[in-house]
Design a protein around this nucleic acid. Sequence first.
DNA 1: GAAGAGC
DNA 2: GCTCTTCAACGCGAC
DNA 3: GTCGCG
Length: 319
Amino acid sequence: MGAADETRDGVSLTNLDQPLFDGAGATKRDLVDYLDAVRDRILPGLRDRPLSVVRVRPGQDPFMQKNLPKYTPDWVRRTSVWAEASHRSISYALCDDRRTLLWFANQRAVEYHPTLGRAGHPEHPTQLVLDLDPPPGDSFGAAVAVALLVREALTEAGLAGAVKTSGAKGLHVIVPVADGTTAEDAAAATRALAARTERLDPALATTAFIVEDRGGRVFVDSTRAYGATVVAAYSPRIRPGTPVSYPVDWADLGAVRPADFTVRTVPALVAGRDPWVRALPEPQRLPADLVAEGRTIPVARVQAMHEGKRRAKARREAG
DNA sequence: GAAGAGC
DNA sequence: GCTCTTCAACGCGAC
DNA sequence: GTCGCG
Ligand SMILES: [Mn+2]
Ligand SMILES: [Mn+2]
């Protein structure tokens, strides 16, 4: 163990011997060393994409950071995006190099959530994502079963995807899409694929946006679309043991656990190889019938907001 | 982690 | 100078 | 500005 502070690639790194967060089983140094060790694997997924990060300190709640703080060094690349919610321009980082990654690590940025499209091109995502969220409990096996249903739906549509652990309890299926694919088409295709997955086994998979309506089934989340973010491959997560979102071969899905992949184990697994690059298929054009089907499916989220509003009103009136 | 307020 | 407090998100869209 | 959700 070295000094508590050091400088690396010109970036000051501080308090390296402090715990990363409660239950991390890792120090801030472990985070810095992990990200530096996998930088050539994680940076390609972050490069040129508006970045949100989740930062955390021991004893405190994690918080998501989008807008760069005033004190951010000027060598951090950034892009401005107007936010309707706060009526202001958000300055997003573009994490393109080692120095920026190390600076974020020193900020205790543990999770890295890039957008689906590149800076300046929110209307043209490079991939679509089916996010599989299992119900509470020990349900990773259910997520695996639903991932295989997603694969079936993809194959049926003439598409191919790659799968990775989310680092939490679920899985992400990623489908690279051809240049020129619009966000609208990608979102519609995502909804259609989620609906087809649910249809393949409605007892196992659901597209219900309201938690209460999921009934112990795996939520096939099609809302990772438009400006949404998805945690990057190789990003650590703020979960016990500091797991990492990690690629898995389809054939190996049944043989892994999310906890197999942590900031301690992953550097050795990626030495001399990039399993995410290897797993990702070529960008694909979305079948017209899939997109057309998706256009007929309402956005579950919107329905849920109205239902939520109705239920809240009912609660108030019940006293 | 860093800045600002208050001592 | 020190200690304490505060801050660090978004959008979907009808109502 | 709200609601549910990630
Ligand atoms: Mn998820
Ligand atoms: Mn989700």
